[in-house]
């Protein structure tokens, strides 16, 4: 399609331009994220020494991973239920419920969830990071669900039916036929869920307990006192590590295919 490739490249360049700026400023010698004065590695040293920031980054990744796994599994199952079984009464309602976390501004959900969790804590006496993880998993579901469902809707049933006609048990049909076909949808959904969880501020701020500060919360608190390139350094490290991991994965995958 003419123009499509150009548009795609434009998007990719536009997406990376701010990231480039962000990385450049992580090497700023000055304590500003908007005024460049000179090169230094100080902020990397500071970030690595800063317990608070390291802990926050680790909590963020931990919660995002948990939320991604849970929400992607739940969303895949729900997407199968809403597209792979016959139409049923209440399908619209189910669809509405799954998308509900999108519909209310976060602060409202956050305040209401806070009241609810306080009640649960009082009754059960349980505390800990589990609350935060579950809350993240819940609001990640619609983001994981939508791409998976879109994928399922465009997949024809022929292959699955053919397999079923050959008396393959449903589970086998699922793992050997449906799941591989569904793969791209699941990957897309999981990636969105991960990003959404990693960047959440408001719900996390309200629900997090002692020692559960995530990176966005850490940064939010820093606004009034000035954000320093330390945050850029941490972001750069996070990006670099993930690029390395994915490259590694890619290489391994290629090896295995050969």
């Amino acid at each position: 399609m003419p123009g499509f490739t150009a548009t795609a490249w434009l998007c990719i360049v536009a997406l990376y331009l701010p990231i480039l700026v962000l990385i450049v400023f992580s090497f700023n010698e000055n304590r500003s994220v908007v005024l460049w004065t000179g090169f230094s590695l100080d902020w990397y040293a500071k970030a690595l020494e800063n317990d608070g920031i390291r802990h926050a980054a680790w909590v963020s990744v931990k919660i995002a991973l948990f939320a991604t796994v849970i929400s992607t599994i739940a969303a895949t199952m729900a997407a199968l239920a809403t597209t792979r079984t016959k139409k049923f009464a209440g399908q619209g309602l189910v669809y509405g419920i799954i998308n509900q976390p999108l519909m209310i501004p976060e602060i409202v959900t956050a305040i209401a969830t806070l009241s609810l969790f306080a009640l649960v804590k009082k009754i059960t006496g349980l505390t800990g990071i589990g609350y935060l993880m579950l809350a993240h998993a819940a609001f990640c579901i619609p983001f994981a669900y939508m791409p998976i469902r879109a994928r399922l809707e465009t997949m024809t049933l022929t292959l699955e039916q053919a397999a079923a006609d050959l008396y393959a048990p449903p589970l086998k049909v699922f793992t050997l036929v449906t799941l591989p076909l569904l793969g791209p949808g699941i990957v897309a959904g999981a990636m969105l869920a991960f990003v959404v969880s990693l960047d959440d501020v408001i719900i996390t701020l309200m629900i997090a307990g002692p020692g559960e500060t995530t990176l966005p919360i850490y940064i939010l608190g820093a606004i009034r006192r000035g954000v320093t390139p330390e945050i850029n350094a941490v972001s750069t490290i996070l990006v670099a590590v993930s690029v390395l991991l994915v490259m590694l994965l890619f290489v391994v995958q290629r090896r295995m295919q050969r």
Binding site: L126, T127, G128, I129, G130, M133
Partner: peptide
Amino acid sequence: ASAVAFASSA
């Protein structure tokens, strides 16, 4: 996993 998550801070 959830047991660990809850217990670790309890």
